[in-house]
Amino acid sequence: MPSETPQAEVGPTGCPHRSGPHSAKGSLEKGSPEDKEAKEPLWIRPDAPSRCTWQLGRPASESPHHHTAPAKSPKILPDILKKIGDTPMVRINKIGKKFGLKCELLAKCEFFNAGGSVKDRISLRMIEDAERDGTLKPGDTIIEPTSGNTGIGLALAAAVRGYRCIIVMPEKMSSEKVDVLRALGAEIVRTPTNARFDSPESHVGVAWRLKNEIPNSHILDQYRNASNPLAHYDTTADEILQQCDGKLDMLVASVGTGGTITGIARKLKEKCPGCRIIGVDPEGSILAEPEELNQTEQTTYEVEGIGYDFIPTVLDRTVVDKWFKSNDEEAFTFARMLIAQEGLLCGGSAGSTVAVAVKAAQELQEGQRCVVILPDSVRNYMTKFLSDRWMLQKGFLKEEDLTEKKPWWWHLRVQELGLSAPLTVLPTITCGHTIEILREKGFDQAPVVDEAGVILGMVTLGNMLSSLLAGKVQPSDQVGKVIYKQFKQIRLTDTLGRLSHILEMDHFALVV
């Protein structure tokens, strides 16, 4: 994948999101292997301009796509893939009243899908469409860049269908997702969380590099694949309309690839034109409109599966009536509230959605109805927002919020430890010299600072030695090549209790 991002070429006709291997024109390309080798690009942008032909009021008969309808489940399912879809609609009884809503608040519980998330729908649909058009064949390999849930859905379907599955996901995604993927037989590649989507090191860039190296491999490409919004247009939206008897006044959905909100909203605009569509985008993402909503100094966020630093091709923002931004604290607070007060075992993005819903639905009156999409299960986040310690460490809970008995030293300040200034190293000294210094002084790690004293990161003896043994660096290389740029900081005025929580999850903390 090139470091400079080429513009994806656009073909003359058809839909841009065809499933299957992508040609340089962004659509299915038939021909000899030699032709494909000559024409197939190194990668295709996940934010390529959409060429979708959908228009409100256009006859369904003019759609270029294969459409399906929700099917009634048999008493005995032939395999677990038949437990994807037909998820329950559940009334939220307490939270709406707590925040003064007059309307009825309903939750579409997508964590009841077989793999635990709304992404099971698009995973199965992308595979079925690729099999139907002859792209996927027995023994082929599926590769997908994902925040985890699409990966789980694909790995689940691949396990049943017999495909090899490789999932490329950023490091910030939970260990629970990784464990589930491994249990399903998927191979996992992790990428830096802070890598831009168009960087060769991003999950998108690495996935395309693997595709170019592995024979008979395919990126189904949830960011561009029409099967993504079509899955929701054909099934999720129809289920909502049936469950609500066609009567709903507002739908609120958090947005990642945009397939969920695009597919549902398009069908609702056709069948229930008075329904307002509300999009939820986390602070630090750029999906919301108008652009002024996205202006923030924050560039990272903890909530998973929603928000991006690019506009995915499948996201149709014209069908969203209003956007709201959400933050991590309210997302996790509301997710825990949904679990504790409503018994809905949902993930953090569901918290984002409901946090926005109780604001947006203030305009609705008694007798009206708001539906929220709860995308995934708490299963993926047992060591994250479900953990009091994690919430404390991230600053989303305060010590006084917890009532468990603490040891005698818990409320003492870090400054009472009488710490001395640490050994520091410059980023320009060599790895070999740094190892000598650390061994001589008896230290395992040291902060790396520039000549102005600005902290650049941390270097550890173990990481340097393993990097040297693996051949990633040489003793003569500058130590700046092996620094940890993500590390926890703590102030002298913070409590030892807070430091204790940090050290339970990290090997060190830097006192500043």
Results as ranks from 00 to 15, higher is better:
residue 2 P to D: 14
residue 2 P to K: 08
residue 5 T to Y: 12
residue 7 Q to W: 05
residue 7 Q to S: 04
residue 9 E to L: 01
residue 10 V to F: 11
residue 10 V to C: 15
residue 10 V to G: 11
residue 10 V to W: 08
residue 15 C to Y: 09
residue 16 P to W: 01
residue 17 H to G: 14
residue 17 H to C: 01
residue 18 R to L: 08
residue 18 R to Q: 14
residue 19 S to V: 01
residue 19 S to K: 15
residue 19 S to N: 06
residue 20 G to Y: 01
residue 21 P to N: 11
residue 22 H to W: 06
residue 22 H to R: 11
residue 24 A to V: 13
residue 24 A to L: 11
residue 25 K to T: 07
residue 27 S to L: 09
residue 28 L to R: 01
residue 32 S to P: 14
residue 32 S to G: 06
residue 32 S to I: 07
residue 32 S to K: 04
residue 33 P to K: 01
residue 33 P to C: 07
residue 33 P to L: 07
residue 36 K to R: 13
residue 37 E to F: 10
residue 38 A to C: 12
residue 38 A to P: 07
residue 39 K to S: 04
residue 42 L to K: 04
residue 42 L to V: 05
residue 44 I to G: 01
residue 44 I to L: 08
residue 44 I to T: 09
residue 45 R to F: 05
residue 45 R to Q: 10
residue 46 P to V: 07
residue 46 P to L: 04
residue 47 D to N: 12
residue 48 A to S: 10
residue 49 P to G: 01
residue 49 P to Y: 01
residue 49 P to H: 15
residue 50 S to C: 01
residue 54 W to L: 06
residue 55 Q to H: 12
residue 55 Q to S: 10
residue 56 L to S: 07
residue 57 G to V: 09
residue 60 A to F: 06
residue 61 S to C: 12
residue 61 S to W: 08
residue 64 P to Y: 01
residue 65 H to G: 01
residue 66 H to N: 06
residue 66 H to G: 08
residue 66 H to R: 09
residue 66 H to T: 05
residue 67 H to C: 09
residue 67 H to D: 01
residue 67 H to T: 10
residue 71 A to T: 12
residue 74 P to W: 04
residue 75 K to D: 01
residue 77 L to G: 06
residue 77 L to K: 07
residue 79 D to P: 01
residue 80 I to A: 06
residue 87 T to K: 10
residue 91 R to I: 07
residue 91 R to S: 14
residue 97 K to D: 13
residue 98 K to W: 10
residue 98 K to C: 06
residue 99 F to D: 01
residue 100 G to E: 09
residue 104 E to L: 05
residue 104 E to G: 09
residue 104 E to S: 11
residue 109 C to V: 15
residue 109 C to A: 15
residue 109 C to L: 04
residue 111 F to W: 01
residue 111 F to S: 01
residue 114 A to W: 07
residue 122 I to G: 01
residue 122 I to P: 01
residue 123 S to M: 01
residue 124 L to R: 06
residue 124 L to W: 08
residue 125 R to V: 01
residue 126 M to W: 04
residue 128 E to T: 08
residue 128 E to S: 06
residue 129 D to V: 09
residue 130 A to I: 01
residue 132 R to M: 15
residue 132 R to D: 15
residue 135 T to P: 04
residue 136 L to S: 01
residue 137 K to I: 08
residue 138 P to C: 09
residue 139 G to F: 10
residue 140 D to F: 08
residue 143 I to Y: 07
residue 143 I to S: 04
residue 144 E to F: 05
residue 144 E to H: 04
residue 145 P to G: 10
residue 146 T to M: 04
residue 150 T to P: 04
residue 157 A to T: 10
residue 157 A to K: 01
residue 158 A to T: 12
residue 159 A to G: 01
residue 160 V to M: 08
residue 162 G to D: 12
residue 163 Y to M: 07
residue 163 Y to S: 01
residue 163 Y to E: 05
residue 164 R to M: 01
residue 164 R to F: 05
residue 169 M to P: 15
residue 169 M to F: 04
residue 170 P to I: 01
residue 171 E to F: 01
residue 173 M to E: 01
residue 174 S to F: 04
residue 174 S to A: 09
residue 174 S to N: 04
residue 175 S to N: 09
residue 175 S to Y: 14
residue 176 E to L: 08
residue 176 E to Y: 01
residue 177 K to L: 03
residue 180 V to F: 01
residue 181 L to D: 01
residue 183 A to S: 14
residue 183 A to L: 05
residue 184 L to R: 05
residue 190 R to K: 12
residue 191 T to L: 04
residue 191 T to A: 01
residue 192 P to V: 07
residue 195 A to D: 01
residue 198 D to W: 05
residue 204 V to I: 01
residue 205 G to Q: 15
residue 207 A to T: 08
residue 210 L to N: 05
residue 211 K to S: 05
residue 211 K to W: 07
residue 212 N to V: 09
residue 212 N to G: 15
residue 213 E to F: 09
residue 214 I to S: 01
residue 215 P to W: 07
residue 216 N to V: 03
residue 216 N to S: 12
residue 217 S to W: 01
residue 220 L to E: 01
residue 220 L to A: 05
residue 220 L to S: 04
residue 225 N to D: 01
residue 226 A to N: 09
residue 229 P to I: 10
residue 233 Y to W: 14
residue 237 A to I: 01
residue 240 I to G: 01
residue 241 L to E: 01
residue 242 Q to C: 14
residue 245 D to R: 01
residue 245 D to L: 04
residue 247 K to I: 11
residue 247 K to P: 15
residue 248 L to A: 06
residue 248 L to I: 11
residue 251 L to C: 08
residue 251 L to W: 01
residue 251 L to I: 13
residue 254 S to I: 06
residue 254 S to V: 13
residue 255 V to H: 01
residue 255 V to Y: 01
residue 255 V to L: 07
residue 257 T to Y: 01
residue 261 I to D: 10
residue 261 I to F: 06
residue 261 I to E: 05
residue 262 T to P: 03
residue 262 T to N: 09
residue 262 T to S: 11
residue 263 G to L: 01
residue 263 G to K: 03
residue 264 I to G: 01
residue 264 I to C: 14
residue 266 R to V: 10
residue 267 K to V: 09
residue 267 K to L: 12
residue 271 K to S: 12
residue 272 C to N: 01
residue 273 P to D: 14
residue 274 G to A: 15
residue 275 C to V: 14
residue 275 C to L: 06
